[in-house]
Write a protein that binds this DNA or RNA. Structure first.
Lengths: 345, 345
DNA sequence: CTGAAAGCGCTTACAG
DNA sequence: CTGAAAGCGCTTACAG
């Protein structure tokens, strides 16, 4: 900055003011300074600026599993949306481990590496979240709400943090329509961990949609997975051994559904002749599967922009708040392919 | 830090020294200070530290396309490897656009946001790369080498930057063995952009392996793609119209291969009865494809650790250099599935 | 209207 | 052996 000032024949203060567009610097001086700065390839030292302004121009993104194509795509879209607003994205992967998540939260927030964190929570409530709440950190919950416990200032802060997630109800109702319409009466659900709010919600939503269409609650079998592919495979063998052996399976997550298909094949079952399959989360290559997989697509770009907008609003209030100020819920859509067929007689 | 110092009854200097493990602070004092700091949830302000030390503890990762599952997985592994070494990862996505890449390079490097950048170059040589070379920035090239032009100090610096990529020769030789062994004599190659070094190399490697096994050079048709799915689909129709219509197709990239399969289906061709397909880049769900896709798997974790190690070596020299000090090339492996069959009569 | 000066939170060379 | 002080590169309240 001193070099730019010298080259432009002004003070460092003038350079700072000019580059931040302060109107007190006459337009032509400003332009001259900007030209010199550009020509010299000058960029302000991010750390120095952060030290002065308490703002880093970076946001943290703590996701629970980058190996999951849904989160990988989501991370990419968030980076893109953040960059469009001039923010850098610091990527972290908690691997569904609350301890790792808390460690990242601490490094990012307490270390002032970022202005706020977009978080896919790995667990219900943790010490790190409590600490983040106590320090009034800017937090946006993504994909999963967090059941806030306690009633102190920290809890109140967390409860007020925006939550961005997709609205699955309509799409799941369509799944129920599709399945019952094809004559399925015994349904298996491979559920996310019931320790997570999303696990409980997505499962209950599916169950309600099904029972509302005449499926007996006792004919719905739930096998709990852990969001990973292997757990889908294990869940399938559990479902196949159930009293009400399902003729259709709903995999409540992309990776678990892939595992389920592998499990079904290993058991020698045909899709959809023996068992129909619907998954939650879509991917561009699902139509290459054998058979092409029917799936619920989440609005990934919508989630990403909503999360970034919510965060930037917390940082500088420049962007309009979310519709209801604390939540954005773009809708999911059912993508019909060929993995669902009539229930076997 | 001042608060920690006050709470521990020492000077801020003592806190700094203690937390950095400086032996001049007696062990028990050090432990006491560390305990107080931990209890108070203290983390040093990253920007302030960066300002003083000229080191950020962050590395930039500029990849060319996060939507590509290969790069998504690679980014995840790099984040993991970096975190294990105490480094944060700033993720950027150039979208194969050299201008975007240069902008990120500038923000990250000139703005001192990171200590160095692991870069998947989007193009042969750019102004941003030249600038990075001139400033002697720490750069590690990933997946693709860069043809450095010029002979100034900047060019010399760039030429000395580590290059981390997989060794494809053996696996491609196996592909050639597989295809020729099945009787294929007319082969189509869907190539990466020939403007990139990787495009030229991967294509030539495949051609040499094929001709070495008796395939006539005139029976090898090359259609150039751009790493994206659509381009694979377009390339297929080009290949199908070729004079020597291929009975087997090698897709030199994961997404382009997926596009190729879609193109083949759209053309009403069966895999592998009419056309065999082998792809470059593997994914855990390729065995769910119809038919399961035979593919060359890159050593993703190996690439990630090699790239991170190379970068950290540049930053502090703490890690042993790469084997030959400027390159790491873990080998690819051919994963045989069912998308290759005997050449049609 | 402009520039000099203070201070953000660290680290480390230096003085005591 | 310990602490005070300087200074990294910015921004902005303040003095001229």
């Amino acid at each position: 900055m001193r070099d730019v000032a010298a080259a432009a024949g002004v003070s460092v203060a003038a350079v700072s003011l000019a580059l931040s567009g302060n109107p007190r610097i006459p337009t032509e001086t400003r332009d001259r300074i900007a030209a010199v700065a550009r020509e010299m390839g000058y960029r302000p030292h991010a750390g120095a600026r952060a030290l002065r302004t308490e703002l880093t121009g970076s946001l943290g993104l703590v996701i629970s599993d980058v190996a999951n194509p849904f989160f990988a795509e989501l991370a990419g879209e968030i980076q893109r949306a953040a960059a469009a607003e001039g923010f850098s994205t610091v990527l972290c992967n908690s691997d569904e481990d609350a301890r790792v998540q808390d460690e990242y939260l601490q490094t990012l927030l307490a270390g002032s590496r970022v202005d706020g964190v977009i978080l896919v929570p790995a667990a219900a409530m943790t010490a790190g979240l409590e600490a983040a709440g106590k320090s009034k950190a800017r937090l946006v919950f993504l994909d999963r709400p967090v059941e806030v416990s306690g009633r102190g200032a920290a809890a109140r802060h967390l409860a007020g943090c925006p939550v961005v997630r997709s609205a699955a109800a309509d799409a799941l109702a369509q799944v129920a329509d599709l399945l019952t319409g094809l004559g399925h009466r015994r349904i298996g659900i491979i559920a996310p961990p019931m320790a997570t709010a999303v696990g409980v919600e997505r499962t209950e939503l599916m169950i309600t949609s099904l029972t509302a269409r005449g499926v007996a609650a006792t004919d719905i079998t739930v096998a709990e997975g852990d969001f990973r592919q292997d757990s889908g495979e294990r869940a399938v063998s559990q479902l196949l051994g159930a009293a009400a052996r399902p003729t259709a399976i709903f995999g409540a997550d992309g990776l678990m559904t892939i595992g389920a298909i592998k499990g079904l094949r290993a058991a020698g079952l045909r899709i959809p002749a023996d068992v129909s399959v619907v998954g939650f989360d879509d991917a561009p290559w699902f139509d290459l599967f054998d058979p092409p997989l029917t799936a619920v697509a989440q609005p990934i770009a919508g989630l990403a922009t909503a999360a970034v907008r919510a965060m930037i609003h917390l940082v500088d209030g420049s962007l309009p708040a979310l519709p209801d100020a604390a939540a954005a819920t773009p809708p999911c859509a059912l993508v019909r392919r060929a993995s669902c067929g009539p229930a076997p007689a």
